[in-house]
Computed example of a mutant assay.
Amino acid sequence: MMFSVRDTTMRRATGATLAALLLAGGTAACTSSSDGDTKAKGAAKDESPRMEPAAAVAKAAKNSKDITSLHYRLVGTVPEQGRVKAEASMRMKPTVAMSMKMTALDQGADGTAEIRLVDKAMYIGGGPSAAKEMDGKHWIKFDLGALEKSGLGGKSLGAGAGQADQNPAQESTFLTGAKDVKKVGTETVEGVKTTHYTGTVGVDDIRASLKGEDKATREKREKSLDQYTKMGVEKLTMDMWIDGNDHTKQFRMKAAADKGPLDMTFTFLDYNKPVTVKAPAASDTMDLAQMMKGAQNG
């Protein structure tokens, strides 16, 4: 295999990996409940008319802390990747695992990929064209821990590796820092009656608000904020659709980044259900670390 082909494959996979991690890490505000399901659509109680917008958002954000797994759908625009759509299942406890099928709509035949995160490794699976560039193998493996320590994956994979272990519900707390949270109205999302709230918040303001948090919480949220800073994002416009049980049914974040707009809408389908992710067969997988080592050796 020529180095130029390897390099092309690596760059494609790097872009897909970073986008996947961003999407997973940005899965904001999915929440948990005692019954672990939102299927009781008609039973959801109406929001109290006396609840102020800021209080409603804060309550939904607080409910996100106990989430263990989620299933969501995504549509939006990601800097450098363009338009994307995806559907994913992710487990946060007891160990992190994710399975995502993603399509980059502006990248033609090479824009569809399946991403699996399991056992601290990320796997990217493409179609027949990818297999032609990888000696017939359909998957490429990224050992995130090893790449982060060695720097072999460069800045993009380093950022991705740093985001891989993040609870995707973290960003749900960010809208609580907005000073202009307001109620937009009531809307039905996936058959569920919700109340729509919106607001804007600066990344620096979010970072400053973390001073009162405990060390562990502060470090986790700062790591998430670092991803936005690296993209050149200064402020976020955020929308939350909260159901009658104070759970976020849908979430949208918009921002101007250095390399294009960030605009992602997540719709939460279910949560706190078992999520099992299996690694692809080793015989059908090419290890990035071995690819890089071979390239460096000529």
Rank of each mutant, 00 (worst) to 15 (best):
M2H: 13
S4E: 10
R6T: 15
T9Y: 09
T9S: 14
M10F: 15
A24W: 02
G26R: 01
G26T: 03
T27E: 11
A28Y: 00
C30Y: 05
S34V: 09
A44H: 12
K45Q: 13
P49M: 05
M51G: 09
A54I: 09
V57P: 04
A58N: 02
A60G: 08
S64H: 05
R73G: 13
R73D: 14
P79Y: 04
R83M: 07
V84F: 00
K85C: 07
A86L: 04
M90P: 05
V96I: 13
A97Y: 01
S99P: 08
T103N: 14
Q107D: 14
Q107P: 07
T112V: 13
V118E: 04
A121S: 12
E133Y: 07
E133Q: 15
K137D: 01
K137I: 06
F142L: 07
L157K: 04
A161R: 06
G162E: 05
D165W: 14
D165N: 10
Q166E: 10
Q166W: 03
Q166T: 14
N167L: 08
P168L: 03
A169N: 12
S172I: 10
G177H: 06
G177S: 07
A178Y: 03
V181Y: 03
T188W: 09
V189G: 09
V201I: 09
V201E: 03
G202W: 00
D204A: 11
R207I: 04
L210K: 02
D214A: 04
A216C: 06
A216F: 09
A216H: 08
T217F: 02
R218H: 09
E219I: 10
Q227E: 15
Q227P: 01
K230P: 00
M231L: 13
V233C: 05
E234C: 04
L236D: 00
L236M: 04
D243K: 07
K249S: 13
D258L: 12
K259L: 04
G260Y: 00
P261C: 07
M264R: 03
F266G: 02
L269T: 14
T276H: 15
A281W: 04
A282Q: 06
S283D: 13
D287R: 00
A295Y: 03
